[in-house]
Design a protein around this nucleic acid. Structure first.
Lengths: 170, 170
DNA sequence: ATTGACAGTTCTAAAATAGAACTTATGGTC
DNA sequence: GACCATAAGTTCTATTTTAGAACTGTCAAT
C-alpha cells in the first residue's frame, strides 16, 4: 500500500492513521499538549533527528493539526501550536496514555497523574455513549455501513466471504 | 532513537506507541474488532505484505494484545483473537475513528455508523472524567508527575528550562 | 570579528518495507 | 499416483524511510 492513498480510504480509522499513524507524530503531539512549541525544544525533548522533525511538523501543518505562528521578526521565527483540529486529538492521546497506565506500567507506577480542574480530583478517562451516557465496550457496539461506505464491499464482511462473492460473480 | 527502548520510557504514551504506533498495527487491530481472525483474511482485506503481517502479528502476540488459538489439527492452524488487554484498546480505536469522522470525512459522509446495543441508538463516543462524569478537554486537565516519573526531569518541564538547569549545574 | 541561538537543510549509512516467489503440510480430484 | 487447492507462513531483491552527524543562513550580543 502507498501511504499517500491511505487518507482517501473509505475508513475513518485509516484516514486518521494517515495523520498520526507513524511512530513520531504521536510523540510530537504529546509534547504539544505539554506546551512545547519550538523546533529545538521538540528536538531536545524527543531526541528525534532534525530531518524527521522538520518533515513531521510540515505534515502536521499540512493536515491542519498544527499552525505556524510567528513569535519574532528579524530573524523570522515561528512556533507550532495546536489548532482546534489538533486539540480535538486529546481524547486519542488520553485513551492511549490510559491504556499504557493500565497495561504497561512497571513496578514504580504511573509516570504522570492527571487532575481534572473542574472537579479537583485525580481521574482516569472513561469513554461513554453520547446518547445514554453508559460506558462503552466493544461487545455492546454494532457497526453499520454509513453513507460514505464502499458500495460493493461492506468493511465488516470477512475477506473469505468477499473472495467467495467475487468468485461467484465471474 | 531505537524503537526497542521505547517501551521502557517513563511515559505511558511512549510505551503504548511501542505496541500500536506503527502504520499497520492499528489497521490490523481494526480488522480484529471487525471479527477478522486468520492470516490470509488479514492479508486480503488489508493488502499488507505477508512478511510484514507475520511480523506484526508476532509483535502483537508478544505484547499480549492478541492470542494464537488453534482451530484445527493436521495441519495445525491458528487464528488470532483479542485478549482482554487487546479488547481494552477499544477506546483508542473508537476515539481515532471519531476524530476521522469529524475531521476527515469527504462529501459522502461517514463510512461506518455505530449503534449502541444497550440503548439502541446511533452514537458518538465521548470521553468523560471518571470522578465527576463531565466531558474532558485538554485545557481542563492539569498534569502532575506520578510515582513512576523520571526523577530529575519532569516531563512537563520545557527543553529550554532543562537545558538552562543543566548549564547552571556545571 | 567572533560567538551563540534558532530553524532548518544536506549528506551517507543503516534499517524497514514492498512485491513477488517459494515452502511445508494436508486433503481432495482426475 | 499426479495434480491442484488451501492455509500460514518464509525467503529473496529492490525501493523507501530513518538515523546520525555536519552544514547553512539570519540576526543579536560581546
Amino acid at each position: 500500500m502507498k501511504w499517500d492513498t491511505l487518507e482517501e480510504e473509505p475508513c475513518s480509522l485509516a484516514r486518521t492513521v494517515a495523520v498520526i499513524g507513524d511512530r513520531w507524530s504521536l510523540l510530537i503531539l504529546r509534547e504539544c499538549f505539554l506546551r512545547i512549541r519550538r523546533f529545538d525544544d521538540f528536538q531536545a525533548s524527543l531526541g528525534i533527528t532534525r530531518h524527521l522533525l522538520a518533515d513531521r511538523l510540515k505534515k502536521l501543518v499540512r493536515f491542519g493539526v498544527l499552525r505556524k505562528i510567528p513569535y519574532q521578526e528579524a530573524p523570522k521565527r515561528y512556533e507550532y501550536i495546536l489548532t482546534q483540529k489538533g486539540l480535538d486529538l486529546y481524547p486519542i492521546i488520553m485513551s492511549i496514555v490510559h491504556w499504557g497506565n493500565v497495561h504497561m506500567v512497571d513496578a514504580r507506577g504511573r509516570p504522570l497523574l492527571h487532575e481534572h480542574k473542574t472537579c479537583g480530583k485525580m481521574f482516569d478517562p472513561v469513554m461513554v455513549c453520547s446518547e445514554c451516557g453508559e460506558p462503552l465496550s466493544a461487545k455492546a457496539v454494532h457497526v453499520h455501513p454509513g453513507p460514505g461506505a464502499r458500495k460493493s464491499s461492506p468493511v465488516h464482511a470477512s475477506a473469505r466471504e468477499r473472495a467467495k462473492r467475487a468468485a461467484e460473480s465471474t
